[in-house]
Write a protein that binds this DNA or RNA. Sequence first.
DNA 1: CTGAAAGCGCTAACAG
DNA 2: CTGTTAGCGCTTTCAG
Lengths: 336, 336
Amino acid sequence: MAKQVRLADVAKHAGVSLKTVSNVVHEYKHVAPEMRAKVQASIDQLGYRPNLTARRLVTGRTGMIALALPETDHPYFSTLADAVVKAAEKHGLRVLIEQTDGKVDRELAVLSDREAGLVDGVIFQPAMVTSLEIAEVQADTPVVLLGEAAMPLSIDHVMIDNVDASRASVEHLLKLGCKKIAFLGAVADDNAGATIRRLAGYQYALDRAGLILDPDLVLQVDSFSPSSAKKAVMEALSEGLEFDGLLCRDDRFAVAALQALREAGLSVPDDVAVIGWDDTELGRYSFPTVTTVSPDKSGIAELAVNMLIERINGQTGVGRHRLAPFSLVVRESAPD
Amino acid sequence: MAKQVRLADVAKHAGVSLKTVSNVVHEYKHVAPEMRAKVQASIDQLGYRPNLTARRLVTGRTGMIALALPETDHPYFSTLADAVVKAAEKHGLRVLIEQTDGKVDRELAVLSDREAGLVDGVIFQPAMVTSLEIAEVQADTPVVLLGEAAMPLSIDHVMIDNVDASRASVEHLLKLGCKKIAFLGAVADDNAGATIRRLAGYQYALDRAGLILDPDLVLQVDSFSPSSAKKAVMEALSEGLEFDGLLCRDDRFAVAALQALREAGLSVPDDVAVIGWDDTELGRYSFPTVTTVSPDKSGIAELAVNMLIERINGQTGVGRHRLAPFSLVVRESAPD
DNA sequence: CTGAAAGCGCTAACAG
DNA sequence: CTGTTAGCGCTTTCAG
């Protein structure tokens, strides 16, 4: 590494004090224009770049926030990450993206900030950790939680109304004339609560329509991977399970289901209407294209970033709970 | 922020010197076991966490590298990012992901490190910037380049052999019996050179088979978005262009093409065989599933991270140029 | 094997 | 409006 140009070097070169250079760098108002020009010339000439690390040490602020996600290589999470980066950028904040791989210990590590001073705050979407575990860890870094878990009341939290989204989806299927609507799927070890809330809305809509929930229609899936979902659908079909509507917990499950149904000789939407979740690119170029619950990802990101910034700025008090909007994007797999 | 526990606090609590605590934290060999135990007890009791910023200031190392990509919300780049994060993790390095949005000025900003000391090095996949512009900016942060651009000889670089991958794809189509193979597509303002190399391989394979390249078969596309690609295919089809094979510059273009062909009443692979690029999830759940060029993303990531670490550790000399392997994943859209 | 002292480069009081 | 001074928390010589 070439020897770094320091503030002091610029000051000496320009023949002024450190503070004056600092004022120029920070674009403070009260600097004589000619002084400013002289200092700027020295800065350019020497190629001075402020050392962020040093600045951080003294200000205590890093200008970075962390975004902890179960999986970054995932169509929903990568879109969400993009939205968070853009929202943070508006406030001059950089985002350090961390992947927890849906492992409890890595999720816990995010909260118990093993290393201090890396980031000013954390936006965290848990997958495995329970609200109890979250509440037990008291980090001194501000945290905003994302997603559907039953969150501890003490921490800020942003989500969409999953129960209502699920209800709207089921009602859409009902309106299409579906009589037997299955749910794909309940994932083993999913503690994030998404499934529970989505199932609640599913049950609620069924109830309202005077239908009873048949537990067999709630398909169990081994993991969050599309291949597990495909396997679950194929097994259900080969066991003779019948359904004419299928609500999927995400788009990956939906496209995997499409593939399973096709291989079984079933037509979508004629034999089975399918609805996905997340509104990812996967469902825009599948065949048929997928009707899907579309969470307002930018809305979620902005709410989360704003709440986090308020906390970083010292806001105290109990956790706030915000709902971001969603819509149902209607495509071929479950048309109007 | 709660008052931080410092090294000095631990030292006082344990009744030893700063250096001793530091030795324990760093797990140096030569510390008496009982001393180590005593200090560790104090660390745990006080909840001490080393302040990374302070450490950085003195060591000059940040333990972070940046990964600059045109677009993070993209199936290929998000998989690649994941691979880089995992490769970096093995060396105790964290990754700060930056999105350039394919804008020249943002790409240049990555190279001219406006802020010093944030990261120890940068892995950069350019999209718009030319090799000339890259060569002109002399950053003092080590850089490794990714992707297909005609890279400056002075900088380390990792890519797959695009010419050969393209050749292999075309030969696969030829073996299937395709007579008129189109290429989707040439994107306006694409300076990264991917298109040129892929076209070169396309032409080479055609030549070898004794076919001549018909310029009309190289479809022009307005942007990298799938919708542009779909539009290009639809227009070509409506203008009466005929082809029985289609090599696409990425999987997004491939699934968009699938949709366009289907809407035009053409069957894949019977009427047109389609090959994509990148081996993303998009092509695994499309209908039909997509035959695709699969770059070894982990291989690329590991090569890049290793080369970057060598540079960070002071290695000098001209740019090294490494090729990562690829394979052709055969699926339904262009079967064996 | 342990302790004291000297900064890393920057910012923020506080004088001038 | 500009200059001086004292640290931020840590690592690292260099003596003991």
